[in-house]
Amino acid sequence: MRLTIEKISKTFKDKQAVTTFSAELTEGVYALLGPNGAGKTTLMRMLADIMKPSSGRILLDDKDISLMGDHYRDILGYLPQEFGLYKNFNAIRFLSYFASLKGLDKEKAKTRVEEVLKLVNLQKDRKRKLRTYSGGMKRRLGIAQALLNDPKILIVDEPTAGLDPQERVRFRNLLSEIAGDRIVLLSTHIVTDIEYIAKEVLLMRQGELIQRSTIEKLLESVEEKVWKCSVEQGALSQLQKSYKVGNIQRAESGIEIRIVSDVKPMPNALSVSPTLEDVYLYFFEKEAEENV
C-alpha cells in the first residue's frame, strides 16, 4: 500500500496553509511534527478527504482519492484534533452510529464496538451518557471511533492531547501494535509520543515539508550540537538570548541547562546525547519561543 502526496497546496483566501507538499508513505507510523500553524491539521484534513487541495493530488496505490470516494474512506480512520460528541448518546450508541457510517454490518459492528471499547479501556463506562465523560475519556472514545473499521490508513491529529501518562503509553503501544500492516500518520507536540514508534518523522514549517527522516538520522543531525552545562542564575537570561536553551533544571551547584548550538556555548559545557526534543528545538526554536 502506498499513499502518495503529490505537490498538494491549500490556500485560504490570503493565507497559504500548505505549500507544494510531497511525500510517499507506506506501512508504518509517520510522525508529523511542527509548530502551531505549520499546516499539519490542514494536511491531515486533506488526507482525510474532508478538505480539497487547492492544487495537487493524493493517490492511494496510484488512484486519486478524490475519485475513489467511498472506497478510500472505507479504509480510513480519522481522529481530528478537535471533535465533539453527542451529549445524549452513550459510548455504545455513539460507536454503533459510527460503525454504521463506516459501513459495518450489524453483527460485525456489535463485536467491533466491544473490541474497541476494550482497546481504549472504556468498557466500564460504555453505558454512561457522553456528557459525563472527562476530556481524556472523550479523546479515548475518539480513538475508538477511528479504529472501528480496522482502517488501513489511520490519520490521528494530536491523539494524546488530554490523556494521562498511563493512557498515552497505552495508546502508543496500541499504535505500535497495529502499525505493521497499515499507514499511520500522527501529528503531535508531545515528542515522546513518537520517539519509539515512528518509522519516519516529517517536519513541517509554514506549510512546507522541511525535513523527512528517521528518528535515528534526525538525532544524528544534531549530534555534537546538544550541550549541558551549569550556570548561575544571573547568566541564564543572557544565555537564553544567545542560544537555543532547552531544559532548565535547578541543581545544588546552580542551574543545569541544555543548549542546542552548533558551537560549544561555554567552556564547561559537555556534549550530551540528543533527544527528539532537542531536534524540535533545533528546527523550530523561533516558533517554540513564540508558543511559550
Binding site: D70, R73, P80
Partner: peptide, 19 residues
C-alpha cells in the same frame, strides 16, 4: 458543525452521501 462532529462523520465511508 456546532458540535464539531462533522469531521468525524465526513471522513467515514457513508459520511458524504448515505448520511
Amino acid at each position: 458543525h456546532s458540535q464539531k462532529s462533522i469531521s468525524l462523520i465526513r471522513s467515514t465511508k457513508h459520511g458524504k452521501r448515505k448520511i
